[in-house]
Write a protein that binds this DNA or RNA. Structure first.
Lengths: 217, 217
DNA sequence: GCCGAACCGTAACGTACGGTACGCTTCCGT
DNA sequence: ACGGAAGCGTACCGTACGTTACGGTTCGGC
């Protein structure tokens, strides 16, 4: 099962130098895509190929390390769910939507998803699993508590948090990610993202907002 | 601009034999992903590599021809929009949703999208554009008239057909496509697809159904 | 029956790249 | 000061694969 990849502490024993190397690899990955060669990474990071192999085993190891390294950087602070009213819930949702749109439209996310999708075909490594864990599933894990809190507060009404989340996910992302991955230049300025986040949130509330109002009968 | 790829009549002068070769290439593409070699295609299609190069130029040419060939096979009949009431509109939408889910969860779609995404990075060919045109944009072109007919009939209420379509797209697809592309085994039996199509349609109607009822005040 | 075109099967070529080996420098501990 | 580990730069090896070349076979036209 793919979900079995837990949140590994990927920062286990990563030297400053190693992190720098992985950063270089990441930058190169964004520029060159899956075409990056070990030689290129070595040159860019000003290290020897021998070192790359000693540290990361082989090419796939380097790629996985790079992806996990980027993933470990994205851990955002969980949303505080103190006094929850409609306004703060709306704000939270918009925030999640906006953040998510910014992520999936970023160059690094696009590059990482591209290489993970490529490798998902011939299953040598589990890049797809890593990307999923730190993307879509991490988002779910952070958002579901908010949704459930909203339900507790009588603001939301849904049976299954997973289903509600997936709807939110669809309303936010729509066709953006697949279009970007396929090379379409979708217009995504800061303003558009804000507007899309608001629209998605309103639609989600229209679908899952409690008809009875907060603390209803 | 990426959208500039019009619907080319890809079946221009394609011999039976050539179609057979492309079918073989397609099957191999589904099995092997982007790892397929020219030798493998030649062997599978029982033709010589020289012929492959004469017909399709080079590897990229073969790939593009294969993708276009598959695309040309998917042209479905447009939906008739005769007497339009809520029932038939709902049925149409569910049909679209169900068809789309079946497509994106099919092995060939996954394989094609994978290779297109891979190649979208280093833009040698325009596989991404082709896939987008025959996937997401073809769907829009077929669905929008239905939506507009629904609006004409007073069943739907929206400003922009494109926006409405994108919402529908998101409600139907949600996280399915990206998860499949990344190698997650999403459960998608016929029953699940039917249920998801119904749910997406109901949600869409809840968001864009005219409050006034058909032939409103 | 004969010719050339199209095509099959396979062998051959060139190159790019993953992976390894080696010499040299730096730097740290003793 | 000295020995050795770590690491840089580079040269080297093996292989896979894209691309080309070639001999043999089928087949339609005359």
């Amino acid at each position: 099962m793919l979900h079995s990849v837990q949140d590994i502490d990927t920062s286990e024993a990563l030297t400053e130098r190693q992190q720098a190397v992985l950063d270089a690899a990441l930058r190169l990955l964004v520029e060159e895509g899956d075409n990056l060669t070990m030689t290129a990474v070595a040159r860019r990071a000003s290290c020897s190929k021998e070192t790359l192999y000693k540290w990361f085993g082989d090419r796939d190891g380097l790629l996985t390390a790079t992806v996990q390294w980027q993933a470990s950087k994205v851990r955002v602070a969980p949303v505080d769910r103190k006094g929850l009213d409609l306004a703060s819930l709306t704000a939270s949702l918009e925030r999640f939507a906006s953040d998510w749109l910014k992520v999936i439209s970023s160059d690094t996310s696009i590059a990482l998803n591209r290489v993970a999708v490529s490798h998902a075909g011939s299953g040598k490594d589990d890049l797809g699993a890593v990307v999923l864990q730190n993307g879509r599933f991490a988002l779910a894990k952070r958002l579901k508590p908010v949704l459930e809190a909203g339900r507790e507060a009588g603001l939301l009404d849904f049976e299954d948090a997973e289903t509600a989340f997936r709807t939110f996910f669809g309303l936010v992302g729509r066709d953006v990610q697949i279009r970007l991955l396929l090379g379409d230049r979708v217009e995504l300025t800061g303003a558009t993202i804000g507007g899309d986040a608001r629209r998605a949130t309103q639609q989600f509330l229209a679908l899952f907002g409690a008809k009875t109002g907060p603390r209803g009968p």
